[in-house]
Amino acid sequence: MIMYSIVPLDDIFNGIENNKPNQEIELNGVIMQVQPMNAYQAKVVRLISPNPQDYLNPAYSPGQIIYFQPQLQSK
């Protein structure tokens, strides 16, 4: 990968080792990568969908927060 930028590379890549991995989930049939914020919320980072119109759906747009609930399971 080659960066062609006026910003020095040191400034661009500073702190890259702290990047947290994304989690992959499926919401209403659309696979998306999310960044967990806490136990109940996650932020949409990226969509993985073959349907281009999904990318225009404001509900799935990157930065949107999705909510979920932990489910208790008894063995």
């Binding site: 661009i12 702190g15 990047n19 969509l47 281009p52 999904d54 990157p62």
Partner: peptide, 22 residues
């Protein structure tokens, strides 16, 4: 190709390209 650290404000390829297709 690389996820840049959060101090960068970025426009991501994988958001732009499918939006252009759409």
């Amino acid at each position: 190709h690389m996820v840049l650290p959060p101090q960068n404000k970025t426009t991501k390829y994988e958001h732009i390209i499918p939006q252009l297709v759409a």
